[in-house]
Design a protein around this nucleic acid. Sequence first.
DNA 1: TAGCACATGGAACGTTCGTTCCAAGTGCTC
DNA 2: GAGCACTTGGAACGAACGTTCCATGTGCTA
Lengths: 282, 282
Amino acid sequence: MPPVLPTDDPAQTPRDAPQTIDAFRDRLTDLDGQLPRRLQQCADHIAQHMDTIALSTVAQVAQGAGVPPSAMMRFCQIMGFSGYAEMQRLFREALSRSAPDYATRLANLKAGGAGHPSTLVAEFVEAGRQSMEALARDLDETALDQAVTLLSRARTIHLAGFRRSFPVASYLSYVFDKLGVPALLHDGVAGLGQRSALRPGDALIAITFAPYSDETLALATDARDRGLPVILLTDPPATRLAGMADCVLTVTEIDFGAFRSLSAAIALALSLAVAVAARRET
Amino acid sequence: MPPVLPTDDPAQTPRDAPQTIDAFRDRLTDLDGQLPRRLQQCADHIAQHMDTIALSTVAQVAQGAGVPPSAMMRFCQIMGFSGYAEMQRLFREALSRSAPDYATRLANLKAGGAGHPSTLVAEFVEAGRQSMEALARDLDETALDQAVTLLSRARTIHLAGFRRSFPVASYLSYVFDKLGVPALLHDGVAGLGQRSALRPGDALIAITFAPYSDETLALATDARDRGLPVILLTDPPATRLAGMADCVLTVTEIDFGAFRSLSAAIALALSLAVAVAARRET
DNA sequence: TAGCACATGGAACGTTCGTTCCAAGTGCTC
DNA sequence: GAGCACTTGGAACGAACGTTCCATGTGCTA
């Protein structure tokens, strides 16, 4: 039974261990720059490999950071934890929450039998998830920034996307309308062109995936010739199309059996729309 | 130095440890039914909680299954592993592959600063991923089966979805066309109705999310009155709409700032389309 | 019913890993 | 240049955990 302390120990380090990953990250940035050499190495390595902590031992993480295990232990204590085990608990809990029974459920759906509808759902969900991860991993932030800049200066934003890409274009049309951004969807109804609607000061978002739609490319070329900025939303192998656009945004859609979930393309398009709307208002 | 065995030991159990999660699952179903009581308990528990293995100790898994740790050890060896540690390695590797640096990347995108376009991408990707997981978790397989059955019997499939739901409907139209399934997209161009296209033997897929589109509901009611099967694709709170459909499929779309990624709805719609096409061919 | 083969559970063992402690090293200040 | 405070790295300790072994229990067969 510990004796009651007469006064708070002034030497006691503050025991505010981060309770969430975000709090952990905040603490990391707070400490940045005011740490001894070895401890700073720990911080840098962990900041860049946060996802490995849940499944690694101290020795492994320390080796990755190029420091002895004892230095990593110090670091954990400076972060507010009692030790590595407590810090690891935070990441393990986050990891197990992110996949509560999702993996099992997917497996059960797949096990429903080939051809069973639920198997298809599992496959498409998996494809969609991978596409999302690929988007987050491979996103070209510079190109995205440039696209936002170009579009936020535009008077009217033209949207072109046919066949497989039409859902993306039409959703952009809906979102821009909701956000109060002037946009025009080139829907190709009745074979009527809307090319003459392209006016100086406008910009075009052209969405097309292999095999590329002739109508979309023709419209992009047309806009280019008129000197309008063209933002191209397409898949990675389309670098040969780079010449006809001012800015190329690529998304890697994982497909399952010839069909794509479009989830990555829509997520990117949505982000673009919201960012453009935000910048126009300022 | 072990002596060279004159003959293969017949008592030696086959050492073909599963190398993938799928192989593991196959082995699990192979063994099902021909296992002693306690070992069967292990198999059952693990089949339903496969995602917990990577982060649990033998003792924890054994307690979950209601068996002593030694029984769990036996089970691991019967599955072909040298022990629990080796089995756990399989699941840990699968887990670390599924999140290579994705989580870190997302964090970095978010750290780009509020209002920065890449932050938006991170948020939408996260929302999309959660929606996908929710779909896998909450999918009503019975309803999906029923929907496939109803639609595979239909002569022509009508598609209704306006405003926010229009991208889903238009993608369904594209996919059905690709698959050779007769489908008609009610696009509402020029305010022209296509109600008279609803003929006996047809079926309707109505897609609408709160706030529900009047046109879609009106079309669904109309189809219902004519005795056509109606499949409703909507969000969970819409149980009050249940009465106007023969089959209700719900998707929980996590939204970020008023906009939804639609990824779960599209994944479900795609699955529905492919399953219907497959069943019609047989 | 006796015998045998197999299943079962607990206790003991050995390894791995987190943690602590102390001696050596480094850089700064007076 | 001496002293001091802080940092550093390795070795030793202790706990947690995987693993094995053996005594006991159970069910089937002759």
